[in-house]
Simulated assay, not measured.
Amino acid sequence: MEEQNPYRASSAAVADVVELVDVESATKWRRFFNWLIDKLIVLLCGALLGVLAALSGNEAVLAWIDRIDRLTDILLTAAITVVYYAFMEGAFGFTIGKLITNTRVVDEYGRAPGFARAFLRSLCRLIPFDALSLLFSDGEVRRGWHDSLTKTYVIRRPRPGQRVGRPRHAISSQFGEGIVPQPGRVAADTGAAASITVAP
């Protein structure tokens, strides 16, 4: 049997580490205009679907649209909302409202959310009073439930070459900067002769 040397360095490939970042969320006013513009877009999409149905000339579809009740209307609007937000944020990282207000959606690593997270964000928007959760959120954090539940942020679009956020502060970085005093450095700094005795 081959002996293994416990002191030999590992031969495993080192994976790229993705750092968590601290980002500054967009202001509540920008978020409000995002919501307002996107709400109008969703309503326009619903109206466009109605116009397309009318132009199709299908009598059954037209009769169904005439008899539509309030609950069905709410469900259709919710479905259009989910599809709109999931597609736009998943494919591009922004909606038309965010494009106009120069904001973007990022995850906690500063990356675009992707389709799965964008879809979950879209579903979370259907939680009652979700829009108010942003209004009453902390002044510095500025996140709604659909942000916090999916670990995403809405930020101002960074300039080209600018980082999305600052790397998250870690205790290990403090040690790397030498905040914890080391015996050799203290002795050198004070000018005293360092005598190290090793106990038997």
Rank of each mutant, 00 (worst) to 15 (best):
P183W: 14
R121Y: 07
F92L: 15
R117F: 00
A47D: 02
S148W: 13
T95A: 05
E108D: 13
R30C: 03
N102A: 13
F92K: 05
L123I: 15
A194F: 14
V164Q: 07
V106Q: 06
R30G: 02
A26P: 03
L48G: 15
A63M: 11
R166F: 10
E108A: 09
F92C: 08
S56C: 02
F33R: 00
V51E: 05
L44V: 04
P113G: 04
G57Q: 06
A53F: 14
I171S: 11
G139V: 02
G191K: 04
T152C: 03
K151G: 02
F92P: 04
F94R: 10
L20H: 13
A131Q: 13
I65W: 14
A199V: 09
G144F: 04
A47M: 08
A53V: 15
R159A: 14
Q4R: 11
G139L: 01
Y84Q: 04
R67I: 00
V82Q: 09
Y85P: 03
G110A: 07
A116W: 09
G161W: 06
G46V: 07
Q4I: 13
V21G: 11
T103I: 01
A9M: 09
F33E: 03
T103C: 04
S148T: 15
M88Y: 06
A79K: 08
R157N: 11
V42M: 01
R104T: 02
F129N: 01
Q182T: 11
T81A: 13
W145G: 03
G165T: 05
I65C: 03
R111F: 09
R67T: 12
R168M: 12
G90M: 01
V106W: 01
S137W: 10
Y85T: 01
H146S: 00
G165V: 06
A118K: 05
L135K: 07
T197D: 00
L36F: 15
R111Q: 15
L43H: 01
D73S: 15
R31Y: 06
I96E: 00
S195W: 13
F136E: 12
E89S: 02
R125S: 09
I74E: 12
G165R: 04
E177V: 05
T101R: 06
K28Q: 06
A63R: 14
I80N: 06
L126A: 10
K28C: 03
L76Q: 14
D147Q: 03
Q162R: 12
S122L: 02
F129T: 08
